[in-house]
Computed example of a mutant assay.
Amino acid sequence: MRWSDAGRLRFGVLLLVCGLAACDEPEPIRIGFLGEMSGRNADLGVSSLNGAMIAIEEQNLAGGLNGRPIHIVVRDDTMNPALAVKYLDDFAAASIEVVIGPVISNMVVAIAPAAAARNLLLISPGAKTRRLTGLDDNVIRMVSDTSLNAVSMATFLAERRDIHRVVIIRDGSNDEFTKDWSDDFTARFGQLKRSVDREIVYESGGRAHFHDLAKQAVMAKSDAIVLIAGNLDAAILCQHIRNFDPDVVIATSEWAGSDKFIEAGGRATEGVLLSQNINSESDDPAYLTFVQKYRSKYKSDPGLIGIRAYEAAQTIFTALKLRQDDESIKEAILRIGTFPGMQNPVQIDRFGDSARPPFISEVSGGKLTVVGR
């Protein structure tokens, strides 16, 4: 085939136009995502990613940030710190500045130094360990530490349900969270002249026998059993506990404070008290709109972590829009301080910590009903 001069001219113009169009395409803003997408805590990683994705889709539909689209680079850390550090290298190589995640306290504590060494900011939707409180580090948290929720639950059980003695079962595989929560609960319960008869520690994903754990707790003959474990573990423990004692009071930390706990545990979750940081009965417009979008897209409820991941993404967008010359994302977030949130504003202090009000909910008729604050 031979080209005419006119054909060559038209082809050259086409190449020039295509080249100019490619040059005009703005470079995307890349955000990292790191979470457990497989394993026993996969529900947290998945809901976190889903919440962040809704925020990103909304922002891109609105034109992105300064005309640049937002892309998210997703990595499944499988709750393996060594693997997570490898993914931090991937993020740094891609010139990513900020990462949403991880959710689990143990993971955030384990990889925070490596993230700092790579100038990566971690924004965690769920890390509540007190070890990170009051530190000038590279971690921003969208949740308060364990103290508010644990103290709230201890006070509620003592003063509203007249509970005097409890047994605690906690998952040692996320010790950074569960030990802090247990310690905060025990301290407040003691102040109220109540006692923790026994603390039972197990390792999720190991050789834990939930039947035996439940039997040990029930045999203590306490007034209540407090579970500090994830959705699935807490649901299974409830089933075994109810087989031994259908009437004992059961309470959980916010780690199990979602509808997924009810789905997994079924009738055994009826009457269980859950610590939460979201009022599921709220009529806040932003909350209702987000939940409707999430349910429509993913056919499930977002839970606390999905909501906090959405807020994390929105916080990043605000910081990127408003940051000043030569200001890092962390510096912009700390300077701005207050960001829009669902049900209440996100207040981030100079250490990157947040304080979110706790709620106590009870499972009734397969749904969560707020019974205390």
Rank of each mutant, 00 (worst) to 15 (best):
A62W: 06
P28M: 14
A84Y: 01
R131Q: 09
E327Y: 08
I169L: 14
L120D: 15
G7M: 15
A286L: 12
I163Y: 10
P125S: 13
G271T: 14
A112W: 03
K128L: 00
D145Q: 08
R323F: 05
L65S: 03
A6Y: 11
A62T: 05
K215W: 01
P302A: 12
R40T: 01
R161L: 11
F290A: 00
E58L: 06
W3I: 12
E27Q: 11
T133A: 08
T318I: 06
A110K: 03
T289R: 03
D89W: 03
G63C: 08
V272C: 13
I31Q: 03
S38Y: 00
I29C: 07
A355C: 05
L288M: 10
V73N: 03
I316Q: 10
V143I: 15
V109T: 07
L120I: 15
R350F: 05
P102G: 05
L16H: 04
A114S: 15
D180T: 05
V291A: 10
I316K: 15
N106L: 04
T78C: 05
T129W: 02
P358E: 11
A217D: 05
G64W: 04
F177D: 14
P358N: 06
I111C: 07
L368T: 13
G366R: 08
N149P: 06
D145L: 10
R188L: 07
L16G: 09
K215V: 02
V139S: 10
V249C: 07
Q292E: 14
S173T: 09
V139P: 10
D137A: 05
Q59S: 08
L148M: 09
T269C: 13
D89I: 02
W181R: 02
T155L: 11
P340Q: 00
A93G: 10
G366W: 09
N149W: 13
N119G: 07
I307G: 04
R131W: 06
M79S: 01
I228C: 04
